[in-house]
Amino acid sequence: MPVDDNGFMKVDTRQLDTRVRVVTPENIAFQYRIAGPFQRLPAYLIDLGIRVGVCLISSIGLTMIFGLAGLESVGQGLWLLLFFVLAWFYGCLFETFWNGQTPGKRLMRIRVLSIEGQAINASQATLRNILRVVDALPGFYLLGLISAAMNDRFQRLGDLACGTMVVSEEPHWLRDVAKVKEPDVLRLADRIPASFQPNRSLARALAAYVGRRAKFTPSRRIQIARYLGVPLREQLGLAQRTNLDYLLCALYNRAFVTDEAPESDEPETSATVTAQVMDGVNPFAPVVAREPAEVKLDEGI
């Protein structure tokens, strides 16, 4: 077993899932999810359909227009040029001018980026699409699939040669902080000492629990809550029959949700107890931003 300098077991921290980290020039790291073959295949098929469709329609259109003018040869020449451009440069042109997307990719919400997370440039877009020929060998993109299976970023050979990857831009919606408003929970919250404030790791565990608890049955909730709930019940000196699920929810409310109670004339000292999360002031907040809400007094105790 490999051991580090301090005698701890070394943990392999390499990427296990399909997320990659990108560090921006602003020195912020954010994550992308890599698009797998089953997102890229439909995008490819959509693009193929568009190409075939445009070829057919333009063939009819050009033949008619130039045929009427008596210049069939010009029409045919233009069509062959169009065919050539569609066959070899469809992806290059779209990915260059549409910021790494083709119509198919846009519909499937995926985008080509360089592996540093920057937008791709024209020569990367061109090379990765020309080398598609090799990836398609010996049929059904077998070589490309093998290559994608052998690296962390699902890169086919064309991607490897120009340092690009395809990421998924799944939409996430901003939701409110989950609030537990069951009356039992609110009642239990009153019995928790106001001085108790969950620390950071406890708060994270509580958030993870509350985020998922809706999917479990009540007995299963208790079973899961037991591991954290029993020691907390002892620590807070609550009765044996306290519902552990409600206890965790009450603590979660304490950590994340502002009490919606009327302002009371308690001394300000209680505010400092609950305000220890962070004052939440963002040094980069733009001028248009609303002033951060004043720290509310907690009516507790």
Binding site: I28, N99, A119, N121, L174
Partner: peptide, 28 residues
Amino acid sequence: YQLPQETVHYLHQLVGRAHNQLYRSRLF
């Protein structure tokens, strides 16, 4: 800030989206 995991996912996606609009592909 102890943001919930879901909000963090949202922020990752939001920053990535804005990043892609700010740093665009260079044309010919």
